[in-house]
């Protein structure tokens, strides 16, 4: 009798256990789907590799490329966008302050045009939300291009070639909005892909040197990454210049541009607050800071550590970090070397 009981109970027990395990396994599998887990990882990552937007209108971008180098966009045909955002000098001009029409000097250092579409706001003080609004700035600034849209449209309309180009691409005549549209499309395409660091992030561990990898670790541990992060390694937040020490007092004297975001909001807490700039191609865009006061990258790193982090960095750490920063220099945007004809068809 006992044996019979055992014979019946044992399989029941085994089945019940199996059932419980099955249930537990299934419910735990349901708790997080694959995409959710991926999302979680994605959201936690600090720096991501650059990507060229896929929905670009190539024809518009090519027209924008023509316009970018067109000096008719300034008073007296003296300068073009390219004059201060040279593709050879990392999308900037290597000067402390750019030279506009009639030899006038700007009041802030020209930021790079490369990857600028990925900045969360435009200008050092973030007064424009996007590139569409940004273009008005230099066009109207008497220290930069010092002209008006009416003048530009008139000049371009006199050029038969331009009329034809606009007709072909927009199927309409030349206008302010279409010029801006083309320029923004081009600037959006100015992405410096495949920097060694991006390749490293994508899994190519040989892309960086030992020193550069050490530099990245220090970049993270010292806390540079607290502000220079995201896809653009910067360009997604505001920070006051001189968190730990007074930068302006130690530099000597105040300039008009030093008030920063205060000009935009009028709030006291926005005084000396600037957009954190992107560190991509930083090797090429000297001199540094909004005032263009620092020509050396190593010194820039040292100053940033002092004023922003309140830290004094050893020489070898500065060197490593500088090496790491050099690995952020990407390839020249493809759009610059592509021929217009190849897309025209």
């Amino acid at each position: 009798m006992n044996r019979l009981k055992q014979l019946v109970l044992l399989p029941i027990l085994v089945l019940a256990l199996y059932g419980i395990f099955y249930y537990v396994e299934k419910s735990s599998a349901n708790q997080y789907s694959n995409t959710e887990v991926q999302n979680f990882i994605y959201k936690s990552s600090t720096i991501e590799p650059l990507e060229v937007p896929s929905d670009l209108d190539r024809r518009k971008a090519f027209l924008g490329r023509e316009l970018f180098s067109d000096k008719r966009l300034s008073k007296g045909n003296q300068v073009s966008c390219h004059s201060c955002h040279s593709f050879e000098i990392g999308g900037a001009d290597g000067r402390q302050f750019s030279v506009g029409v009639d030899g006038k000097l700007g009041i802030v250092n020209a930021p790079t045009v490369f990857n600028s579409a990925k900045n969360f706001k435009q200008f050092w003080n973030g007064r424009e939300e996007d590139l569409f609004g940004q273009i008005d700035g230099p066009i109207h600034d008497p220290r930069e291009m010092g002209t008006t849209w009416d003048e530009i449209v008139e000049k371009l309309k006199a050029d038969q070639m331009m009329v034809l180009l606009f007709n072909e691409i927009f199927d309409a005549e030349i206008s302010k909005d279409r010029i801006i549209g083309a320029l923004v499309e081009f600037e959006t395409a100015l992405v410096t892909e495949d920097s060694p660091f991006d390749l490293f992030l994508k899994g190519d561990h040989d892309a960086l040197t030992e020193s550069q990898i050490a530099g990245f670790r220090k970049f993270e541990t010292y806390g540079c990454v607290a502000c220079h992060q995201g896809q653009n390694i910067g360009g997604n937040m505001f920070l006051s210049m001189g968190v730990a020490f007074n930068y302006f007092a130690e530099r000597g004297g105040y300039f008009e541009s030093d008030v920063g975001r205060f000009v935009v909001t009028g709030q006291e807490h926005d005084r000396h607050v600037f957009k954190v700039p992107s560190l991509r191609n930083v090797q090429l865009t000297a001199p540094y800071f909004h005032d263009g006061s620092e020509p050396s990258l190593e010194n820039a790193v040292r100053k940033m550590a002092r004023y922003q982090l309140g830290r004094k960095l050893p020489k070898e750490d500065i060197k490593d970090i500088t090496e790491f920063l050099k690995s952020l220099t990407g390839k020249k945007p493809k759009i610059l070397s592509e021929a217009y004809e190849s897309v025209k068809k």
Binding site: T221, A226, M237
Partner: peptide, 20 residues
């Protein structure tokens, strides 16, 4: 949105100091 901008700033600074 403005508050969030400021929050980001404060957060970065605080984070570094707390780490140091």
């Amino acid at each position: 949105a403005d508050l969030i901008e400021r929050y980001k700033t404060q957060h970065s600074i605080l984070r570094n100091s707390m780490k140091y």
